Amino acid sequence: METIIQTLTHTPWWVYLLFALIFYKGVRSLKPRAVPLKKLIIVPLVVSAISLDTLFTQINLNGFNVLILSASAVLGLIAGYLMTVRAPIEVDKEHLVYKMPGGITTLLLIFGVFFTKYYIGYEKAVDPTLMQQDGFETFVIIASMLFAGLFIGKLLGYAYHYRK
């Protein structure tokens, strides 16, 4: 219990602010809503940028890691695309607004990204040598690229809805 309290007290204030923001956004996504195209583009780009930054600054990109990276990204792309293509989304092409159904998917995805990144940051703070361990490095690659792929796949699904 003391470890949990220490972890929470040493967490920077802006992490709590970020958590509150994504909680708010996630809860809003539970209800049907109209979302401008600009807002649909921002999250996939931010998640992808964070994932790529992690990969290029903290991971040894050898052949095996590139294979894992590619497979995770492709799986994420396919899953994200299928989630979005099958959703009953309407597009107001004149105003570039998507009429989205409510659902828990967005909440789960953004919490998944948040808690995965928080966990990775925590583990690296406790043991800075952890990134040199193959198992942890593989976990970071899979998690980063799977989430990036999911969000980019969802973005491609939104493009599909726009074109139909």
Results as ranks from 00 to 15, higher is better:
K25H: 09
V35A: 06
I4C: 07
K164D: 02
N65E: 00
Y16E: 00
D53W: 09
F19T: 07
P32Y: 12
G121L: 11
I120V: 15
H161F: 14
I4F: 15
I59L: 08
N60T: 14
I120N: 06
L146E: 01
A71N: 02
V74C: 07
F64K: 05
D53A: 13
L150C: 06
K31N: 10
L21N: 05
I42Q: 03
T9S: 13
I41K: 04
Q132K: 13
N62R: 02
T105N: 07
F56Q: 03
F114G: 05
L30M: 10
F136Y: 09
I110R: 04
V113C: 07
L61A: 05
G135F: 11
H10Y: 15
V47T: 07
M100F: 09
L45S: 06
G153C: 07
Q6C: 11
S72G: 08
Q6A: 14
N62D: 04
I22D: 00
L96C: 11
L155V: 07
Y119Q: 07
M83V: 12
L150S: 02
L67R: 03
H161K: 04
L155R: 04
V43A: 11
F139T: 10
S70C: 07
R163C: 09
K164S: 07
V27Q: 05
G80E: 00
M145H: 05
F111S: 05
R86D: 13
F56I: 13
D53E: 14
L75H: 05
I152S: 01
V27K: 08
S72L: 03
N60Y: 10
W13G: 08
R86G: 15
V15Y: 11
A148R: 00
F115V: 12
E2W: 12
W14A: 13
Y118D: 01
G121C: 12
G157L: 06
I89Q: 00
Q133D: 08
G153L: 06
K31L: 11
G26M: 06
T3F: 14
F111P: 03
F147E: 02
I22H: 05
V47Y: 14
I59R: 04
P88T: 07
L150Y: 08
L107P: 05
Y16C: 04
I120H: 08
K154H: 12
K154V: 10
E94T: 15
Q133P: 01
Y24A: 10
G76D: 02
G102M: 04
T138M: 09
E90N: 14
Q132L: 12
K39I: 12
T3S: 13
A148K: 03
V126W: 09
Q132I: 10
V46R: 03
N62P: 02
G76N: 01
E137L: 10
Y160Q: 08
F56E: 04
P12D: 01
S72F: 11
K164C: 07
I142D: 02
L155M: 11
L8K: 01
L130D: 00
N60H: 10
M100V: 08
L21Y: 13
V140S: 08
V47D: 00
Q6Y: 10
L82Q: 13
R33V: 08
G135W: 09
T105V: 13
L108H: 09
I41N: 01
A20L: 14
G63K: 00
L52K: 04
I41E: 01
V140Q: 06
I78N: 06
I78W: 14
K93W: 01
M131H: 10
P128L: 11
Y24H: 12
F114Y: 13
E123K: 15
M131T: 15
S48C: 10
R33M: 06
L67V: 11
P36Q: 03
T57Y: 12
A49I: 11
T57L: 12
